[in-house]
Computed example of a mutant assay.
Amino acid sequence: MPESTSSVLLPPGGQRVLVVQAHPDDAEHLCGGTIALLAREGKEVHYLLVTRGDKGSDDLHLPPEQLARIREQEQREAASVLGVQSVIFLEGYSDGEVEPCLQLRREIALVIRQLRPDVVFTFDPWRKDEVHPDHRAVGICTVDAIACARGLWYYPEQLHDGITPHAVRQIYYFATDRPNHWVDIGTVVEQKAAALRCHASQTSRKDILQWIREKGIVAGAEHKFKIAEAFHHHAL
Rank of each mutant, 00 (worst) to 15 (best):
V50M: 00
L115I: 15
W126F: 13
K43M: 01
D134I: 03
G162T: 08
A78H: 14
L90F: 13
Q210S: 15
T34K: 05
V143R: 10
Q191H: 11
P165Y: 00
Q85H: 13
R105K: 14
G92Q: 04
V143W: 05
G83Q: 09
A78D: 14
V218K: 14
L115H: 08
E99T: 14
G14K: 07
L37G: 06
R169I: 03
D95M: 13
T164D: 08
V189W: 04
C31K: 01
P117R: 02
L104F: 04
A175P: 06
L38D: 03
R106A: 14
L30V: 00
L30D: 06
E190A: 15
T187C: 10
L236F: 15
R76C: 10
V20T: 09
V143M: 10
L82F: 11
P11Y: 00
D177C: 09
V84D: 04
A235V: 14
A79H: 10
K224F: 09
A36L: 04
S94L: 08
R113T: 02
I208T: 06
V168T: 03
K215V: 13
H199E: 05
K215A: 14
Q170T: 10
Q158I: 09
V119D: 02
V81N: 14
V143E: 11
Y172G: 04
P100H: 07
S4Q: 00
Y47A: 05
C141A: 09
A68N: 14
H181I: 11
A221S: 09
A221W: 01
E130H: 05
D144W: 02
L196S: 07
L236C: 06
L236H: 12
E41D: 06
R71G: 15
I140A: 07
H135G: 05
I212R: 01
Q114I: 15
L209H: 05
G33D: 04
V188Y: 09
T203N: 08
L104Q: 08
P2Y: 01
T51R: 01
T5E: 03
G32H: 00
Y172F: 08
E91W: 02
H233D: 02
Y155Q: 12
E3N: 15
P11D: 10
V131S: 10
A36W: 06
Q210W: 12
H223L: 01
P156L: 03
P125G: 04
V81G: 13
A147T: 00
G13M: 07
I185L: 11
V87S: 09
Q170N: 00
A36R: 04
Y155L: 14
A149R: 06
E229N: 13
E3P: 05
